[in-house]
Design a protein around this nucleic acid. Structure first.
Lengths: 335, 335
DNA sequence: CTGAAAGCGCTTACAG
DNA sequence: CTGAAAGCGCTTACAG
């Protein structure tokens, strides 16, 4: 057979109407046990599965969730994606993955997802112009932006950067550090701006100040390069806080393997995210934990409420952060 | 407006028939310049994009490609996924991501993808029973299995495991190693079976034999545990070849940080895949490179040919492998 | 509970 | 080149 099996085929074999076949595959529709049995027998004999596209055309829901990610080069993004996909699957939602290579592709990717009538879009990358936001609002499709603070018109889920970096500042100062540097991620990213800003403020609130800083792009290589330039300066920093763990791993490798420094004896290094590798014995990175499972379940909950038709204003959810002390930072009591 | 804009709306505004609107958005359809202009103006004014679902229902093609992956915990899988998604996007194909948590979910995930009328399915995880294969063949949907050798009825793309592990055997023996161990991945995986088998054979072909071996599940933790047990035996191995890089990183960290061994002085470690981290200065892992871009472009090419209707028998493509010598293995000339 | 029929938003022969 | 109409495979009021 060169044609897909349709509900019509099943109906014919089962001796019922096509509508009855449809009802058997529609949760909550009323069908007699007898009819249901005939249909199920016929369906399994023919190997019938309802066409999700046709179903999506008639119902309001397709079960498709658009996920806009960056280039998936970041270990954090990748771990988040994995957890997110697992959670979506548990809800029987299918992720339509829009991987963007550049941050300005985000808007386009959202519109492409819309073309497939996705029930919602989760944006985990790049930033979105207000024009795009208002454009997507015409579609009445829920949009959740991850890693972004309050944004007009859409839901956002973000970790508590301010609290996290405050913990870092306190920890480093308690560790006796006075030349504290910062290596940031992509300057255009919200998380970078917030982390840098709040970290600087937190130091100042405690009577200290940022000693030096550099910018990267959240990559390992950028962490290496930035660390190298900071550490070879006439007066190098004695601690580096990094915008994410990947940068921190690059910085640590540069300090140890290129410059021959001991971490944390010569230098404390702290990251942000708590990706799996931060706990590996080769790194044992002190970092701010950003609980990915909580982020994901907040997203799923929000979608459930929106799908249920609840009329709530755009949410700006913050997920709590915490400090995970490992071996890459000087312990306060040893000073 | 609470309703999506349809081609009907555009037609009304542009003063043409709905069919003409459709033609403007269908590549290769003939429309007069005048009509095209009117339609394009109206479409952009209304913010119209064709409904990809409705289009998919009438055409043979949806532009959707189902991708069945494992739990995305593996660094190799994740890097491959990233490259794959980039390549699909370049073709205007959208990946419908089916992330499975257990290997026996593969078949179900394929059928779910089928329900969305995907144009093809790329399976990059788990194994598939012959029943599922024949079931999917009824749908006439191309299926490509990655990381699998020749399989009846479907296309496969796999790296040249045999050649790769032969290079490892030769390299280790040339390095003077005589107690060579192997830590495998998931015993149910094709790649594991092939690598283990061919590695054992390669050693024997060169007059040596496998000294010890252990099984893991391709994870970092399993690499650590297996290395620990092998290296604390009365006579430990002096070299370990690992079924993938992630295992090798775990093994290396266990050797160095838990047992205090020097790599490669006390022990050579070799991996498989050549993931990004294998080149990081903290590891500098000697490994077999499996070119992901070639794997991906082979898949894209194959899909293009299948979509074009070419009648070719199931392909069993092998991608060449090569040895990347870094610092985790003893150099032959130093012995 | 069940069938006939309209409709979801497109594409594509079929005439003209 | 263009319009009217059939059809893709479903769901869902509407009657009965």
């Amino acid at each position: 057979m060169n044609r897909r099996i349709t509900s019509e085929d099943v109906a014919r074999l089962a001796g019922v109407s096509q509508a009855t076949v449809s009802r058997v595959f529609t949760a909550g529709a009323s069908v007699s046990t007898k009819a249901r049995e005939k249909v199920e027998r016929a369906a399994s004999e023919l190997g019938y599965t309802p066409n999700a596209l046709a179903r999506g055309l008639t119902q309001r829901r397709t079960g498709l969730i658009g996920i806009v990610t960056g280039d998936l080069t970041s270990l954090y993004d990748t771990q988040l994606l994995s957890i997110l996909c697992g959670a979506l699957r548990a809800e029987q939602w299918q992720p339509l993955l829009m991987r963007t290579a550049r941050t300005d592709e985000t808007g386009g990717a959202m519109l492409e997802a819309m073309a497939y009538q996705v029930d919602a879009i989760i944006v985990a990358a790049g930033s979105v112009s207000p024009t795009i936001v208002s454009e997507t609002q015409t579609y009445h499709t829920p949009v959740i932006m991850m890693g972004k603070g309050e944004t007009a018109g859409v839901d956002t889920i973000c970790c508590d950067n301010a609290y996290g970096v405050r913990l870092v500042a306190r920890h480093l100062l308690a560790g006796g550090h006075r030349r504290i540097a910062y290596i940031g991620g992509n300057p255009a990213a919200f998380s970078e701006q917030e982390r840098r800003h709040c970290f600087t403020e937190a130091l100042e609130a405690q009577g200290a100040s940022l000693f030096a800083s550099a910018s990267g792009d959240y990559s390992y290589e950028s962490g290496q390069a930035a660390a190298l330039s900071l550490l070879t300066a006439p007066t190098p920093p004695d601690a580096i806080f990094c915008g994410n763990d990947t940068i921190a791993l690059g910085a640590m490798d540069a300090a140890r393997h290129i410059l021959g420094l001991k971490v944390p004896r010569d230098l404390s290094i702290i990251g942000f995210d708590d990706i799996t590798m931060a706990g590996w014995p080769g790194y044992r990175l002190t970092t701010i934990q950003q609980p990915m499972d909580k982020t994901v379940s907040a997203a799923v909950n929000l979608l459930q409420r929106r799908f249920a038709g609840e009329e709530l204003p755009p949410q700006a959810i913050r997920i709590p952060t915490s400090l995970v002390i490992r071996a890459s930072s000087r312990a306060p009591d040893l000073v």
